[in-house]
Design a protein around this nucleic acid. Structure first.
Lengths: 229, 229
DNA sequence: ACCAAAAGCTGATAATTGTCATAGTCTCCC
DNA sequence: GGGAGACTATGACAATTATCAGCTTTTGGT
C-alpha cells in the first residue's frame, strides 16, 4: 500500500503530472497516506487546511451546509482527483466539507510542498489552473441546471452522471450507490421528493432497484427526460 | 480615452497587476479598445474566443441558455474584471454569453499575449489561479443558494448583492438597475414571480421603487429574510 | 410630442415541491 | 437470529412557484 508518487498511476489524472522528477520526490517524501472510513470527514467547512488530499481509492462528497439546515452536495471527487486545492491556492479556510461516501485511501500532501512548486514551476501552476478552469465550468453548468431544471430532470441527470462517471456492477446496478438522502442533497430537494420520483421512475421502467441500489434500465428515455422530452 | 495599460488604474483589481513592465508593454501594444452598447454581446456561448476582455467601464452579464429556453445569469462582471479568462486558459469555446447591461468600454487582449505570459511568469499564472479559485468559491456558494433557498430569499440576496457591489445613486436607488427579467434570470425564476415578490417587498416597506429602479429601505429585514428569520 | 414596442403589473389557475405523519424494510451489531 | 436504529416508502395536505391571459405604464426613436 505504501508507494512512491513517481510510480503512482493516479498521478496521471491530476495536475501532479506536470511535476518534475525532483518535485515528485519532494512530494513523495512529505506525503502521508491515510485511510478514511465511510461516513468520516477528510475535513469540514471552515477548517484550516494544511495540505491537499489526493484520492487513491474511494469517493468523497464535497458539501456545504445551508442556513436552512440542509447539506448541498456540490461535487463528488474520486480516484485521481485532488481535494482541497482551491482552499490551499486561495489561502482560505475550507468552503466545503469533504466526507467519505466509501472507504477511502488518500495521500495527504502538505501545503508547503504544493506552494513551493506553484512558485517555481509554471507548468504545474498552469496545469492546476486548467483543472480549476474545468471545475469552474462544471460549477457554472450546475448553477444553470439547479435553477432551470425540474427535480425530476435533475434526478434523471444524476443517475446518468453516476453511470458515466462510476460505471455499473456485474448486475447492472450503479457502481456508486448513494443513499436516497445523498441523492436528494445532490439535486437539492427534500428526501421524500427524491424517493417519490425514484419510485415513479421505477414504475415507468426507466430504472430498476433493489434496496438502496439503483440500475439504469432505459437510458434513452432518461436522456429525453433531461432534455425536456 | 486611449491609454497605456501601464497607467491604467483598473489593472490594480485584476491579475494583470502581477505582470512585469515589459509584459504590460506587450499587452498595451497588442490590445484594442472597444465600445459595447447596452444589450450588445461581447461574445456568445459557443464562440471561439481570441482573447480576453478587461472591463474599463460598465457591467456585463454572463449567462447561459438552458434547454427550457431560459437564460440563467451566472455572474455580473464590472470594472476591473477580466472576462473570457476561463475559456482562454482552458482552450475551450465560451461556456457563457457575455452581454452588456450598460454601455461598456473594454480592452480586448489577444490570447497569444496572455498565453505567453502564463508560460513565462509564474507570478502572473498564480495570480490568475487565485482569481479563478475565488470565482469557483463564489460559484459553489451560488449552487447552494440556488438549491436551498426560496425565490424570496434569493431576490432579497440579489438586492443586497447589488447594493454591496455597485452601490446606490444620490436618490438611494441601486446604482445598477437591472430589468425585472434580468433579476429573474439572476435568481432563476419566472419573470412574473420576480415581479410579484418585488411588489410584496415594496408593500412590506423593505424596498422602494420608481419605474424599474429599486432602492433598499430596510436592509436589516432583508438580511433577516435571507438568513431565514 | 407621439406612437409603437417593450417592460411592468395583477389575477386566476395549475403544476411542482415541501412538510408532517406513519408504516414497512433493511442492516448491522451483539 | 433478534432487535434497535437507520433508511426507504407512501399518503395527505400545505406552500411555493409557474403559466397564461389581459392590462397598464414606461421607454426610445423619429
Amino acid at each position: 500500500m505504501e508507494s512512491r508518487c513517481e510510480n503512482c498511476i493516479v498521478r496521471q489524472f491530476n495536475s501532479l503530472r506536470a511535476m518534475s522528477k525532483e518535485e515528485l520526490k519532494a512530494v513523495s517524501d512529505s506525503k502521508t497516506t491515510k485511510t478514511i472510513k465511510k461516513g468520516e470527514p477528510l475535513f469540514e467547512e471552515g477548517d484550516k487546511l494544511n495540505g491537499v488530499y489526493c484520492v487513491r481509492n474511494g469517493v468523497s462528497k464535497l458539501s456545504k451546509l445551508s442556513s436552512n439546515g440542509k447539506d448541498q452536495i456540490v461535487k463528488l471527487a474520486s480516484t485521481g482527483e485532488v481535494i482541497g486545492q482551491r482552499s490551499v491556492v486561495a489561502q482560505e479556510c475550507a468552503n466545503l466539507s469533504a466526507i467519505a461516501v466509501n472507504d477511502m485511501e488518500v495521500c495527504f500532501i502538505p501545503k508547503e510542498t504544493i506552494n513551493h512548486t506553484l512558485q517555481k514551476n509554471p507548468n504545474f501552476t498552469l496545469e492546476v489552473l486548467r483543472h480549476m478552469a474545468h471545475d469552474l465550468k462544471e460549477a457554472d453548468d450546475v448553477i444553470v441546471n439547479m435553477s432551470q431544471k425540474t427535480v425530476k430532470q435533475r434526478i434523471a441527470e444524476a443517475f446518468l452522471y453516476l453511470k458515466n462517471n462510476f460505471g455499473e456492477d456485474e448486475n447492472g446496478f450503479l457502481a456508486l450507490s448513494l443513499s436516497r438522502e445523498d441523492i436528494s442533497n445532490v439535486v437539492g430537494t427534500a428526501t421524500e421528493s427524491a424517493i417519490r420520483i425514484i419510485s415513479e421512475f421505477k414504475k415507468k421502467g426507466l430504472i430498476h432497484t433493489s434496496g438502496k441500489k439503483v440500475g439504469i434500465k432505459n437510458e434513452r428515455k432518461l436522456v429525453e427526460l433531461v432534455e425536456g422530452f
